[in-house]
């Protein structure tokens, strides 16, 4: 049971209020038609299996229903950073 800071509500909430939507920063290609099948396949299906800092997209499902990003350490489960969608702070060691 993680304790997650919702940047929109401005406080920590219990994990049961949230849902993890997987790896963050998977940008939808601007011109899907220009993508090869392989490129599209990578966009859809290929994800990192990081040991350590992992950027994830979460949504505050039973709270404000807003999405946001976290950097979570997959070894210690520590959440090292929480930040808004549309931003991408540099963090030492964080996988992109």
């Amino acid at each position: 049971m993680l304790h997650i800071f919702c940047p929109h509500c401005g406080e920590y909430r219990e994990e049961e209020e949230f849902r993890c939507k997987g790896q963050a920063h998977i940008a939808r290609p601007l011109d899907p038609e220009a993508c090869s099948d392989e490129e599209w396949g990578h966009f859809m299906f290929f994800r990192q299996n990081t040991r350590g800092q992992h950027r994830e997209l979460w949504v505050h499902s039973t709270g404000c229903r807003k999405h946001f990003n976290v950097i979570r350490n997959t070894v210690t489960y520590e959440i090292e950073k929480v930040y808004l969608v549309g931003t991408k702070p540099e963090t030492e060691g964080a996988a992109s």
Binding site: R19, K21, R28, L57, V59, S61, R65, K66, H67, V85, G86
Partner: peptide, 13 residues
């Protein structure tokens, strides 16, 4: 609804 919000919030704000 969550799917629509996801696209609106993250892809097409």
């Amino acid at each position: 609804l969550e799917w629509l919000e996801l696209y609106h919030q993250t892809e097409w704000p």
